[in-house]
Design a protein around this nucleic acid. Structure first.
Lengths: 240, 240
DNA sequence: CGGAGTGGTACA
DNA sequence: TGTACCACTCCG
């Protein structure tokens, strides 16, 4: 009768062991508890407690205590829930407790294709072209001089009505922060959208046309990163 | 240095004593352990152990081992969480995500008496006179004959619009199941309520007038219980 | 008094 | 509603 088992945990510093124990009785019988043992033998029963043992040196942000694995998507989830980093959303009368947008779902159990308005948990409403609400806002440095925005590569083209370079950058950076999946840009063509914006916009993708990234592009970017790291290293030496 | 003290424990059969010992050192310094001593001097260190000593004859379900007192609310809490035993509740349009009832709270931190609508966790809404939604439903026996409802004592009077004996019984039994506190009936007078039902109803109390229970009533009820037990004992003998 | 094991609760 | 955390019980 194998009720517990200890194992190494590759996501943690060496010496830590992980144990899974099945509850044998009581109301919670059958549930499992996960414990860890530190290299010095201390039993650790929760993530906060583990953080206390590991100290500042080890970042548990992406560590899933239950599974014992690093969860790379969890970090984005956490950011998304930080309201200071949420997108500006459509402003509507607050008496509507339901999100204003609804989602059509398909009842797969039924043979005919039935569509229905789904209630319950939904994605929060997204405003198309919300970036325009940020127009006129700028990041400034400590002396309140406006920081120059980045330039866009020539092959990154905006999709939508009168989007500034700034808007497009906001759109891209938001998509990088908010999306769990790949960030690819809009699949539809530029002409159709400028006539009827919103008709076919994918609110989860930035407002840029899909762009072909070549091996060349990747190489060039890698070189830039390497060069930047080299310069940072130089600068650090200067500080010692 | 008084670290322990023994005392009688009125919630237990006579002869049982209770002792409280403060832990002096270690990680748990300052915490207390509670022990009991049975009439024959045996030390008892836990509730399961006590149940073993007392046997079937004494019900420890409501006994709080730590405090040594009977806790009437604990057993009812367990029942209340069984959704099959919840009251029929008001049916309202589901678009209202907020409970329809609100609770006024007093901001005690403020010197003026401020009232405010409290959001967040609240008691579930209670429908006044919800019993009427059960009208026409009856318990039946295995041959689907309707079981005769109980009769009410003459001094138990309904409070509310056209409540049947059945409604009143439902109301009383629900209150006995759901309430943590004493079940006393409505404090207001019958006349006012039949004109404006709901005006001053206490939804936590059954819809009966407050009734004086005399020593006589209690005696009579005790006799009934004793008689019922005697007859049960007879019947059990017949089965052997 | 320690600690394994379960319960209870706040939070998402 | 489920889950994570931690308080608590019970017994060594």
């Amino acid at each position: 009768m194998e009720l517990k088992r200890q194992s190494d945990c590759p996501s943690l510093p060496p010496g830590w062991r992980r144990e899974e124990v099945v509850r044998q009785s009581g109301l919670s019988a059958g549930k499992t508890d996960v414990y860890y043992y530190s290299p010095d033998g201390k039993k650790v029963r929760s993530k906060p407690m583990m953080a206390r043992y590991l100290g500042e040196g080890f970042d548990l942000a992406t560590f899933d205590f239950r599974t014992g694995k690093i969860n790379h998507s969890s970090i984005r989830k956490r950011i998304r829930q930080d309201s200071s980093l949420s997108l500006p959303i459509r402003q509507t009368a607050s008496i509507f407790k339901q999100p204003v947008t609804v989602k059509r779902i398909r009842e797969d159990t039924d043979s005919k294709t039935k569509t229905d308005l789904k209630h319950g948990p939904q994605d929060p409403p997204k405003q198309l072209f919300w970036e325009k609400r940020l127009q006129g806002f700028h990041a400034v440095d400590s002396s309140e001089d406006i920081l120059k925005a980045l330039d866009l590569p020539r092959n990154v083209q905006g999709v939508g009505p009168e989007l500034s370079t700034e808007n497009i950058l906001q759109s891209i950076s938001a998509a990088l922060h908010m999306n769990n999946g790949p960030v690819m840009g809009q699949g539809n063509n530029k002409q159709a959208l400028s006539k009827n914006p919103g008709a076919n916009i994918d609110a989860n993708q930035p407002h840029i046309q899909q762009t072909m990234i070549t091996e060349e592009d990747i190489k060039r970017q890698e070189m830039k990163v390497i060069e930047a790291r080299r310069r940072l290293e130089e600068a650090m030496k200067g500080l010692l």
